[in-house]
């Protein structure tokens, strides 16, 4: 089997707050294989956000190792990390984080602009990604002209566009109502079914149930790491989730 998408070994992150040192994350060893769907849970200050930042190559650890697709990335400089993020990682945020003044299409094409793609190629790939999330008809809208759920779809298309091996979603449903949140989770599940590894942070157990693996953080340590039978997987979708999936398809 190929190398795991992400493997952390005794990962630590300390923050210096005035004279004292806060251990935000201590000895976190996690292996995430390709195609997994993982929910990261825990109260605020538990270290889950720090863990996600490290996983997303947005931050570097104080100690420990982080192998991304078999490559040590914990000692890379900011520009090299940017390249890893650009080519291998997709981000989905709670507040969508779309650029407000440009169209959905340009937002989706943004990561490609930092890669080696021509303009025409970028537009083509971005349009395909938007189509995949069911927003083909809204690609020339700006974010303010879109609903929350649609904005998050654009964000997911943006995460998808670079053909990443992993999508990191930080409370992707936190700013959405329950129904829209479920639609978004279904979309992420579809992508997962296609083989993209999904790691999501949530504090809602119902959302965590969409993942096949749940990792609990507490006080900077991993409290538990267990597999579960995921809700709403394609074959065994409960009735309500299937309905929403149908609704999504109808919308798309």
């Amino acid at each position: 089997m190929s190398a795991p998408v992400a493997q952390t070994i005794d990962l630590c992150k300390d923050y210096r707050v005035g004279p004292s040192v806060v251990h935000a994350l201590a000895d976190a060893s996690v292996t995430i294989d390709s195609g997994e769907s993982v929910a990261v849970m825990g109260p605020s200050g538990s270290g889950k956000t720090t863990f996600m930042n490290l996983l997303g190559c947005l931050d570097t650890p104080t100690s420990g190792r982080y192998l991304f697709e078999g490559t040590e990335v914990s000692s890379l400089g900011p520009d090299q990390l940017a390249i890893v993020r650009n080519q291998r990682i997709g981000f989905v945020f709670q507040s969508f984080n779309l650029l407000p003044r440009i169209t959905a299409l340009d937002n989706v094409a943004l990561p490609l602009a930092y890669g080696r793609y021509r303009r025409s190629e970028r537009r083509r790939i971005a349009a395909a990604a938007l189509e995949e999330v069911g927003l083909a008809e809204r690609m020339n809208h700006t974010p303010v002209q879109l609903s929350g759920g649609q904005q998050q779809r654009v964000a997911i298309a943006r995460a998808l566009v670079g053909d990443p091996s992993i999508i990191l979603a930080d409370e992707p449903t936190g700013a959405l109502d329950t129904r829209t949140g479920i639609e978004i989770m279904n979309l992420l599940q579809q992508l997962n079914a296609r083989g993209i590894t999904i790691v999501l942070v949530t504090h809602e157990p119902e959302i965590a149930r969409f993942a096949r693996r749940v990792i609990h953080f507490r006080d900077g340590h991993i409290q538990s790491d267990e597999s579960q039978e995921a809700l709403g997987a394609m074959s065994q979708a409960p009735p309500d989730a299937a309905d929403t999936a149908d609704a999504v398809r109808a919308l798309g």
Binding site: R85, N86, L99, L110, Y114
Partner: peptide
């Protein structure tokens, strides 16, 4: 600032 953060997250290097 937030826009810069987004750009960096999706792969903008410092020089970009």
């Amino acid at each position: 600032t937030r826009e810069i953060g987004v750009r960096m997250a999706v792969g903008a290097r410092r020089r970009d």
